[in-house]
Amino acid sequence: MFNPTNCLILSILLFAIGAYGVIAKRNILIMLMSVEIMLNAANLAFLTFARLYNDPTAHVFVLMNMAVAAAEVAVGLALLICVFRHKKSVDSTKLNLLKW
């Protein structure tokens, strides 16, 4: 039996876990993974509403979302490699030049 409440709560939980990962983890790799979890949570919410309203537009949105996520991961990981070459570390606290 389809219950939108459960699906949405699940989506919220996944989102919160992802957010925790982005904020609390100091490993850039895992921060990127957490971002993926957050995106998944958003996709889940989209599909729930698609089901609720019988609207295929949300499906298109999810596909776009995946494409953007793929692009984001590609660029993000390339940047990570770049950073690693300079700093020999993937620790986000080592990248504190933003304060100057």
Binding site: I23, A24, K25, R26, N27, I28, L29, L32, M33, E36, N40, M66, A69, A70, V73, A74, L77, L80, I81, F84, K88, S89, V90, D91, S92, T93
Partner: peptide, 28 residues
Amino acid sequence: IYAGAIIVLFLFVIMLLNLKKNEMGGDA
């Protein structure tokens, strides 16, 4: 896309970097 492409990309990068313990960052 996710389990195939993105995860593989992650794994590749992890292998490429071959991180040591002190390079990983850890938690807040």
